[in-house]
Design a protein around this nucleic acid. Structure first.
Lengths: 341, 341
DNA sequence: TTGAAAGCGTTACCAT
DNA sequence: ATGGTAACGCTTTCAA
């Protein structure tokens, strides 16, 4: 049964018809056997013949043909950003991916770098995904959500600092990060607080909400002042800021994240500004690296708290579409006090 | 022309047949117009009618149906690893993605976390990609390559420390990294060289070749000795290693990468071992962070040198399949001397 | 227990 | 210049 009836079969990709011919049965029987269809009885001998033929030919079903026939796919699309994903987001995606696989979805990341918003959404829609999970930084508009929905997506979900009208939202509210840092600094008696704002494009998506949270937290305390400090991720930029530090009259700084904090803290120390005596420094992300500095870096630790695992939420929304947009806050922030402030 | 002829059309995903009906033409004409087919003449009035109908209905072509009909896709599949991708690899993928898009390929990342090698390859083959670019860490065997080829992949390319039999290879030869670091240390008169080996699973793929390169470089120098130093990415593990440092009799260490180098250097300093006087430390990756340490971290700087852009290579292999496996070395390593060694 | 046939959305060929 | 029709690979209903 492992002979090739036609030489031609070797040159082209084997189809279920080839398997049927090799096994001496009909295409329907092949489908029944390979999909373990239980509504129909097939003899064990036939089953074995079909499986052997499929194996011999190296037959692999054609996903596009299958989902075309089925009228729907089980593809969950994750449009990828050009933004450097943080550790937190990478872990989130890794977990989401394996959880969704367990629920029998196919997870596909689709890079949209260099497409304008309309082209991008159109490209996603062509793939007819059953659900779309769009991280911050992808250009998803209410119009785009409509296009995805009309092309069959049962659930469109945003993941990021703020929801988008018409889609479900897994909200990572960055305001909590700035808020936690500032409340921590206030509790330590600091009042004139700088907030580092990365000049790198794209990060504004995160830094602006962090600043907003910082401002909001400062309002709770009379006499507290918050000031923006634009900074490029370069030694020269940090040195320049440190050189005029004393003219700013600040007693503390929330440095956007641990990497900017390291950069700034080093520049401050080099400029003779004592940390934390003269200026307290707080980062965010709680990287291992911050613990290796002297003084050890205080940092806002973030984690994702999910009542229901995101994969299950997606599955639920897919099975039961059309409900009102859901919104879930995932980000929990907590400042870990170390030596720098 | 924006009226809906049937209410039914609103509830389901519009097809080219719906567009044809709305525009009062045949499906063929719709296809001609929307694909700008030049071999056939269509009146401008008809063209406008068709386009307007497509727009009104929100028609988006169905990629699966299209590639089923065409008999081939233009999908380039990038199986994703569970491994944390380095900066270098992320940049590589970002560039590859936009370059391939310019050549009109669709790039899809497919997460295979939690699948065994056979399942994974089968899942990839079901998608009928025209090319597969497999980074290190995905379980691609010669058998898997055969399965992909038989299911229509015109090019299978590995990206990583070593080639796989039967596939084209973009080789990132990590031996050069260890070699460059050790040659640097030797030139500074160091002879008893430790090499940090991360205990984290998965990193062995990179650390073992780096060690091999280090050993090879040391052979060129009589009296040079190289010793493995297993280390977990944790402060406790580094402290333990630092505590027994002097019993090891080493005068220098290549610390796998900048992060492990920072961890170890801090632990050494805390244990009273002077850097670089007593022990020289070299990292790899040339991260900004290393420049912020005191002493500033010496590091192996890596870059990808490509004679032909990888996207063009893939395009060439796809258009002209069946050639002998190609192999290209991409990684160039060069040690940047700073203060730590 | 098995086979024939229809149909998913597209495009290419051959008529009109 | 435009329209009918067949075919891509697969699943499923119905009939034998």
């Amino acid at each position: 049964m492992s002979q090739l009836p036609e030489q031609f079969a070797r040159t082209s990709v084997p189809t279920s018809a080839d398997v049927a011919q090799a096994a001496g049965v009909s295409r329907a029987t092949v489908s029944y056997v390979l999909n373990d269809n239980t509504t129909v009885r097939i003899s064990d001998a036939t089953r074995r013949r079909v499986r052997a033929a499929a194996f011999d030919l190296g037959y692999v079903p054609h996903a596009a043909a299958r989902s075309l026939r089925a009228g729907h796919s089980r593809m969950v699309l994750l449009p990828a950003t050009h933004l450097p994903a943080g550790l937190l987001q990478r872990r989130f995606f890794t977990d989401l991916q394996s959880d969704l696989r367990r629920l029998d979805y196919t997870v596909v990341q689709y890079g949209s770098a260099g497409l304008d918003p309309d082209e991008a959404v159109r490209a996603w829609a062509e793939l007819r995904p059953v659900a779309v999970v769009a991280p911050a930084g992808v250009p998803l508009t209410p119009h785009g959500i409509g296009m995805l929905t009309r092309s069959g997506a049962k659930a469109v979900i945003t993941l990021g600092p703020q929801p988008v009208e018409g889609a479900h939202a897994l909200v990572l509210d960055q305001r909590e990060v700035g808020g936690s840092a500032v409340r921590h600094l206030l509790s330590r008696g600091r009042r004139r607080i700088g907030v580092v704002m990365p000049r790198e494009p794209g990060l504004a998506l995160f830094s602006e909400p962090r600043l907003a949270g910082a401002l909001q937290a400062a309002e709770a305390c009379a006499g507290a002042r918050v000031r923006r400090l634009p900074l490029r991720y370069e030694e020269a930029s940090a040195a320049e800021l440190a050189a005029r530090w004393r003219t700013l009259g600040l007693d503390s700084v929330f440095a956007y994240d641990d990497e900017y904090a390291m950069l700034l803290m080093r520049a401050l120390q080099d400029a003779g500004v004592e940390v934390p005596a003269e200026t307290a420094v707080v980062g965010a992300g709680d990287l291992m690296l911050g613990r290796l500095l002297r003084p050890r870096l205080s940092s806002v630790s973030m984690e994702l708290a999910t009542a229901q695992p995101p994969a299950e939420m997606i599955d639920r929304l897919v099975r039961n579409p059309g409900g009102a947009p859901e919104r879930h806050d995932l980000l929990r922030a907590r400042t870990v006090a170390r030596e720098s402030g």
